[in-house]
Amino acid sequence: MKRLLIAAAAACVALLLLALSALAFGHDPRELLAILVRGSVGSPFAIAGTLLKSVPLLLTGLSVAIAFRAGVWNIGGEGQFIAGALAGLLGARYGVIVSLLAAMLAGAAWASLATAMRLWRNAPEVLTTILLNFIAIHLLGWCVNGPLQERAAQYPQTDAAAATLPALGSVHFGVVLALAASIGSWWLLYRTAEGLRLRATGLNPSAARWAGIRVSAQLARAMAVSGAAAGLAGGIELLGVTHRLFERFAAGYGYAGIAVALLAQLHPLAVVASALFFGALTTGAGELQRTAGISSGVATLGQAVVILVLIGVDYVRTRR
């Protein structure tokens, strides 16, 4: 309950700071907050938009939560998201299920590149995962301009994927999948031996080693599961929302996952609420861009402020 209050306070402070920075540039903060609310939850259309944005955020948030719980610094959600979407596109001709499985596998494989470099060459995953993000972005750029470009060869984008997620009212079936992934992650972390080992490794790797846990293998599995979640996010975004790939497909979902997971205090079920908050913020920021000409970068700003406020609150609490 206390942690819920902290998270809610952090979210409010973030919104307040956004309003203040808008004020500094001569906007009316009340008007902007009104647009933000109207654009995210003000109409059935806006709510559907928020839900659609929340799905990839929920999955990249789970990806980060699992990795951070295990003590692995997976900052590579962005790259794994793209790898998943690319594999999803290729697998789509065999149907939705194959496509999403391919997306998860590709995300896991892309993340595991970092594990391999960690185990064989002692290269820190916090850097290799980030570098792999840039490589994935340029790989995608090459694909949509080259081998995977649409047959009409007019725009730098692919043809529409051969499969589509079933619709669910004005949203898609990915909403159900994301919720299932959240419950599944909770089950994995808190109700299985694997989850216990994973959390033990994250809390104290040397103690875990003494307790007979094979720490390297544990980290490798955590990284793979984390990558699979980000890859699934990419696959669902492709089959449910964009249907095509283009250069700016990832749109920061991978990095946003870090804020989502931290606001949820790395708890898989709380990630749902956290993803909805950031989904609303992103959707509202899009409306700000359209109607008030304010950069949708304020959503990124909001993510940063939430993380920093959480750190601050944590500091004040532990000092007492």
């Binding site: 900052i75 959503a299 990124t300 700003l301 940063a304």
Partner: peptide, 16 residues
């Protein structure tokens, strides 16, 4: 975590 937040902040502020 702090460094990541700083990077997001810089990206958001500069684009704003």
């Amino acid at each position: 975590v702090t460094g990541t937040a700083i990077n997001l902040l810089a990206l958001g502020v500069t684009s704003f």
